[in-house]
Design a protein around this nucleic acid. Structure first.
Lengths: 147, 147
DNA sequence: CAGAATCCTCGGTGATACTG
DNA sequence: CAGTATCACCGAGGATTCTG
């Protein structure tokens, strides 16, 4: 609908759009930060501890990107010591809602994926790593593992 | 609902699930390949030309990952010369549909993001790259730009 | 407390050549 | 045609230190 002069099918347009979104929140830490920011104003060190495993540098960069894209609002309180709060914009909340719809797919097919993986590994002789999803919970402690 | 024994809130669970999905299709080429595979059986070289800018190696790796996750089916025809077809599984189609819902968000807020970027750049004195979305269409030629 | 600056590593990615 | 193998590179990301 946008432009009708190219021979590019809609599927490609969709793919590109998806990629654009993914390029923004597809970063290693974006989602983690976004999630916590969506729950209300969050401070820097708060995030540093909440998003397990993130470094100062990466937190700063992630926040910058999200702020730059208009997904986060940075509020500085000129107190001493300084206090900065990050808040998710309405746009970010919408995005997050959209992203959460993906979880329904994941939950529906969690077993299928695992089965496919197993079948694949069995047939192609264990391609190496188990790659059992890098997720904090149901694991002892991620921060320790990062060492 | 899953487990009630941890102090981990649902938001974090969601975040992790989203990350898991993103880790699978968040790759640079996964979406592109997936899109073409969803339109029907596709052959290797077909994809190599369809997904502009992808290298043989990356195409192979992407296909492997998608196959491993049960998103693609690899069918080998023992002819000569060899012929291999990749087909998206129903699961993959569902995933793709879910991903497409993201495009609605992107389209709704395309202007907002651009505006936010501009505002940010104006206030913080041009952080460097314009970063105007890496997307084939409405651009002359991506393959050439990759050099 | 919140970040900037610097250095360094490691893995994803691309280019090329070879094979069944 | 459909890959595999090998090398070389670059940049995302991590650790540490310094500052307002």
């Amino acid at each position: 609908m946008s432009q009708g002069h190219t021979a590019v099918p809609d599927e490609v347009t969709d793919a590109c759009t998806v990629r654009q979104v993914l390029d923004r929140v597809g970063g290693k830490w974006s989602i983690g930060v976004l999630v916590h920011a969506c729950r209300g104003p969050v401070r820097f060190t708060e995030l540093e501890r909440a998003v397990e495993g993130i470094s100062r540098r990466m937190l700063t960069l992630t926040l910058r990107n999200l702020e730059r894209d208009g997904l986060l609002t940075r509020t500085v309180y000129p107190t001493v010591p300084p206090k900065v709060e990050y808040t998710a914009t309405p746009m970010a909340r919408e995005l997050y809602d959209s992203l959460v719809t993906l979880t329904s797919w994941a939950q529906r097919h969690r077993a299928d994926i695992a089965a496919a993986r197993e079948a694949y590994d069995r047939e192609h002789g264990r391609a190496g790593d188990a790659a059992t999803d890098t997720c904090p919970m149901s694991g002892p402690d991620l921060a320790a593992a990062g060492r």
